[in-house]
């Protein structure tokens, strides 16, 4: 069955993987609300046509996040798919991670997902089920030095997804996470150090970095009716860099 006509929310959708995914879902005929703290999300959504709309939200702000999520779901008259894609990355040695930096990472990368799931699941329960896909990372399973707060936040996403799968399973809501390897976004291609790109590329037996569309394709698959028996999983899209 087709995704056409169904409603989706994608967070962190002003650029990169989130924007690529939103475009892909619109191409499949879905009605998509793009959330981002960057006001540019409005124009980016407009560029995707009449099925998309953008909303500005600061996912650190609990009240604002709840209000925007609830208004969005009401406006879309229910929800089939929630993609918690928004996240931040920062590299700091463990001995130098300030508690406020730790908290900030967890607020965006984990707590915001909890708030959106709490807002979205009731309407999926009231409807015919749904799909929740949370963006984790290969860092949840491997990780590199300087990523303690980031890797911990992404491991939390994997665990959160598993428990959500438990709690919402009887309502035919599947909850999965995606663990991308190194992804080269358009922005990253212009700004990354070539030596770093070469190091990242070497981690994949396929000899290339992921494109945003590689990740978007995985999310689209997990969002489909046909993937309705996959739940609680974390799917690596890592070019073979991580195999568990």
């Amino acid at each position: 069955m087709s995704l056409a006509g169904r409603a989706a929310i994608v967070t962190g959708a002003a650029r990169g993987i989130g924007l690529t995914l939103a475009r892909r879902l619109v191409d499949r005929g879905m009605r998509v609300t793009l959330l981002d703290r960057d006001p540019a999300v409005q124009a980016r959504a407009e560029s995707l046509g009449s099925l998309a709309r953008g909303r500005v939200v600061d996912l650190r702000d609990i009240d604002e996040t709840r209000a925007v999520a609830e208004a969005t779901i009401e406006e879309m008259d229910g929800l089939w798919l929630l993609v918690n894609n928004a996240g931040v990355f920062e590299k700091t040695p463990l001995l130098e991670i300030d508690p406020s930096a730790w908290d900030s990472m967890m607020e965006i990368n984990v707590r915001s997902m909890v708030l959106l799931i709490q807002a979205a699941a009731p309407s999926m329960i009231a409807g015919d089920g749904g799909r929740i896909v949370n963006q984790a990372s290969m860092a949840a399973k491997l990780g590199t030095p300087g990523e303690a707060h980031y890797a911990a936040s992404k491991a939390a996403v994997v665990a959160l997804s598993r428990i959500a799968a438990h709690e919402f399973g009887p309502h035919q809501i599947t909850v999965n996470s995606v663990c991308p390897g190194y992804v080269l976004t358009e922005m990253g291609a212009d700004t990354r150090d070539p030596r770093q790109i070469a190091e990242w590329t070497a981690t994949s037996p396929l000899g290339r970095l992921a494109t945003p569309d590689d990740i978007a394709a995985a999310v689209e698959f997990l969002a489909s009716d046909e993937a309705g028996y996959i739940t609680g999983e974390s799917l690596n899209v890592s070019g073979g860099a991580c195999t568990w």
């Binding site: 037996p205 396929l206 992921a210 590689d214 799917l235 690596n236 890592s238 073979g240």
Partner: peptide
């Protein structure tokens, strides 16, 4: 899935 390899999907 062109970037998925060495993976198992349950």
């Amino acid at each position: 899935a062109d970037y998925v390899t060495g993976e198992y999907l349950v």
